[in-house]
Design a protein around this nucleic acid. Structure first.
Lengths: 194, 194
DNA sequence: ACCTGCATGTAATTAGTTACATGATTTT
DNA sequence: AAAATCATGTAACTAATTACATGCAGGT
C-alpha cells in the first residue's frame, strides 16, 4: 500500500465505504449491514462490490487493514481510514454535481398497464406496496435504534428524506391505483390477444 | 430474423423499447426522445443502449425494420412490433416482482455533510433543487402536451407518480436543509483538517 | 435437522455508459 | 459563425450483480 493513492472523485461504492469508515473502524461485513439498514433506501451494495472496494482502498493506502484471528470463525478484517484516506474523502465530497438516479421497472411496467390483466396490475402494485411498507418499517427501526446514538445531522436529514419520499410514493399509489383498473382497460388486452 | 425469438423476462431497455413500439412505429431517435421526456424521471437510456437494443429485437424477430431513404440525412429506420414481439411483451409484463431502485450520490454525500463546508452543502443542495425544478417543469410540459393525445391510464398514473414524489422530495429539502448548516458542523471539519 | 448469523473472498457475466465516427440542414 | 436538430451506429470501458466456494456456532 501507500503508493499513488489515487483520490476518489465520485460517490461510488469505494467512496461510500471510505465515508462509513470515517465514522469508525469496521469490517466488510459491518459495512454490508450499514448498506442494508440506514443506506438501503438510496444506495445498494453487496459483498461482491464491498470486498473488492475495501481491497482497492487498502491498495491505495486510503485505509489500513488489521487481521484479527477468531475462534471458529474466519479472520475478521478491521479497516481503519488513514490520513490520506481522509483527505481523499474530503476531496470527493468537494467534487461537483452528485447524481440522483431512479431506475424503476415497476413504473416502466405500469406504463403498459393497458396490456395487463386487472389481477396482474393488483399483484404488481400489492408487491410494491409491501416493499414500501417494509422499507418504512426499516426506516422507523433505524431511527428508533439511533436515538441514543451519536448520529450526524446529515444522516438524520437523509433518513428523513427517505421517510418523506417513501410515504409520498405510498400515498400516491394507494390513492390512484384504482385509475389503472377499469372496465375499459380489460377489453384492450382481450381485443389485442383474442 | 425470426429465429428463436427469446422472450423478454425483465423490464430492461430492450423490453421498454418493445413496449414503446407497441404504441406505434418509431425510430431509435424517436424512442430516445421518449426516454428523455415522459420516461426521464424513472428510466434512463442513451443511444448506446437503444440502438443495440433495437438491433437485438430485430434479430429475434420481435420487431421489423423498414429503412427509409431521406435526402441529406442518413436513412431513417422505422421499427414496428411483430406478433411475436407483442406476445413477448405480454409475457414480460406477466413476470413477477419488477424492481424500483434508487442510487443517489446526492444522499450519500449528505450523509457526510459534517465533513463539508456550509458553502459546499448549499452548492450541492442548490444544484439538486435546480434539477428537481427542471424535472417538475418537464413533467408539467409533458402533461400539457398530452391533453389532446390518446394517453393511456398507465402513462397518466406514472406521470402523476413522478410529480407527487418529486414534489415531496423538493419540499423536504427546502424545509430541512437548514438542519445541515449549523455552527456545530463547521467546527467539525476545521477540527479534523486543522 | 435446519436455518440464521458470522465472515471472507473470486470469477464470470451482464448491462449500461462514454467516447468516437459521420454529416447535412435549420435555427439562433 | 455557432449551435442545435436530425439520424445512425460501434468499440472500449466501467461498474455492479450473480453465482460460486468455504465453514463453524448457536438457536428453533
Amino acid at each position: 500500500m501507500e503508493r499513488g493513492f489515487s483520490r476518489q472523485r465520485a460517490m461510488d461504492v469505494k467512496t461510500v465505504c471510505l465515508g462509513m469508515l470515517s465514522g469508525g473502524e469496521a469490517s466488510g461485513y459491518d459495512l454490508k449491514k450499514e448498506f442494508e439498514s440506514s443506506f438501503s433506501h438510496f444506495f445498494a451494495a453487496g459483498y461482491g462490490s464491498i470486498y473488492p472496494a475495501l481491497a482497492a482502498l487498502a491498495d491505495n493506502g486510503l485505509v489500513t487493514c488489521e487481521q484479527i484471528a477468531q475462534e471458529g470463525k474466519p479472520d475478521r478484517k478491521v479497516y481503519r481510514i488513514t490520513n490520506a484516506g481522509y483527505e481523499s474523502l474530503l476531496e470527493a465530497l468537494d467534487r461537483a454535481s452528485p447524481s440522483h438516479k431512479i431506475r424503476s421497472e415497476f413504473l416502466a411496467m405500469l406504463c403498459f398497464a393497458h396490456l395487463m390483466t386487472p389481477e396482474r396490475i393488483d399483484e404488481v402494485i400489492d408487491q410494491r406496496l409491501d416493499d414500501i411498507r417494509r422499507n418504512e418499517a426499516l426506516l422507523d427501526d433505524v431511527q428508533a435504534n439511533s436515538v441514543d446514538d451519536s448520529w450526524t445531522s446529515g444522516m438524520k436529514f437523509v433518513l428523513g428524506f427517505g421517510r418523506a419520499v417513501t410515504e409520498a410514493a405510498r400515498r400516491y399509489i394507494e390513492q390512484n391505483r384504482h385509475t389503472l383498473v377499469t372496465n375499459r382497460e380489460q377489453t384492450d388486452r382481450k381485443a389485442a390477444t383474442g
